[in-house]
Design a protein around this nucleic acid. Structure first.
Lengths: 210, 210
DNA sequence: CGCTTATGGATACTGATACTATCCATCACA
DNA sequence: TGTGATGGATAGTATCAGTATCCATAAGCG
């Protein structure tokens, strides 16, 4: 496959593909002469993955790169691969809540994790985000929502279980890692849009008359 | 309150507050003289909301503006207010899937909505995102995940119900709208971080040994 | 009263991100 | 043999989210 065909097959403009090559998102094609390279099926699948992450899941290019690197590091333990992807995915948070809310949130989250028996490292970035979010919700006067944290955790465990089940059938190791990462990231987009739809439907039923 | 106190109370730099004022995210303070304005408690709460949306939920400034406008349009029916916020929240999507995957996804989503009895407008932007996401998952060879769409919808209905329940107790109309919007947006951040945590825990248990 | 600091308002500048555009010396192929 | 695509390099662009600077005025302190 030449770059033009790659472009036609995916709808990604040639200059953009060149940009991804430059940035190291896409490995270089096999050179047959100094200015002729050919791309294979792996390139096609990789490019589709890149585009889905960027367009659909709005993952920044630099983060996509980190994620792909973690996928390609298939000598690492699987859990490490996933952890790397998670870390890339979670931006370092700043604070935006009052101190009381923060301490309350910290305790609540610690208790939740203990009660669920989750094994989570203390420096997991998602942990910080969770605390910040709970704190922000409290600061904004949404204690009602926060009171249902446990219900949320319930549902979320359900997701995680579905994803693991759907994935453990996968034969090869690197397919497994790829599935987990895709499931994590596009799964989020999936949940978000489903949730919007459900809300819209319920709010239509409930408040048709203001 | 003067702008400096507003800044100290929230941790937002003064120039940034000025920027939000310029952009119309924050209403102007009450002028006591040509270069002296005072801000009230409403400004403080609004500013905290703005920051939570921008920092935590990564909502673009322009979108925050639209959302706040929909909150302030409290003469509109509640469902309309929410719809406006939803529309602002869902970026217009481009495609990134094969045609077969798209048609399969379209049917699957239509069937799902019919089976659930959801009342969703055909032009709801979240609908397009959902179709695109399902199509992308298929294109990327993740049919396993897509097969569990219905389980996802189950869990998501649970979320929506929690959110509605927690919110209908709210006394005033505009507090109601605000709660729904905060719940929608920060709820997503909440779910995302919980989900990452649950995955991390499960993957640690399951794949400690590669 | 004078002095330092803060303020509102306007305009300009910055750094990051994600591409696009242009060039050029080959290549492929009709 | 010439038309168009390609690889590689470099430069340019649009958008976003602030920052920085200036100025004339106002507040608070000694």
């Amino acid at each position: 496959m030449r770059i033009g065909e790659l472009s036609k097959a995916t709808g990604v403009p040639v200059p953009t593909i060149k940009y991804y090559l430059r940035e190291g998102l896409l490995p270089a094609g096999e050179l047959s002469s100094p200015n002729q390279a050919s791309y294979g099926d792996a390139h096609l699948r990789r490019l589709r993955l890149i585009r889905a992450l960027i367009e659909l899941a709005q993952v920044p290019v630099a983060t996509v790169k980190e994620i792909l690197e973690s996928l390609d590091a298939d000598t690492e333990p699987l859990h490490e691969q996933i952890g790397r992807a998670h870390r890339a995915l979670t931006p370092t948070r700043r604070l935006s809540a009052t101190d009381e809310a923060r301490t309350a949130a910290t305790t609540q989250v610690r208790d939740l994790i203990a009660a669920r028996g989750w094994s989570v490292e203390a420096d997991a970035p998602a942990l910080a985000t969770l605390v910040d979010t709970v704190a922000a919700l409290r600061t904004l006067g949404q204690e009602g929502l926060v009171a249902h944290l446990d219900d949320y955790a319930d549902a979320v465990e359900r997701f995680a279980r579905i994803e693991i089940e759907g994935v453990t059938k996968n034969p090869t190791r690197d397919q497994l890692a790829e599935s987990v990462v895709i499931g994590t990231i596009l799964g989020e987009t999936l949940i978000a849009s489903l949730r919007l739809l459900a809300q819209e439907s319920i709010s239509a039923d409930l408040w048709k008359d203001r």
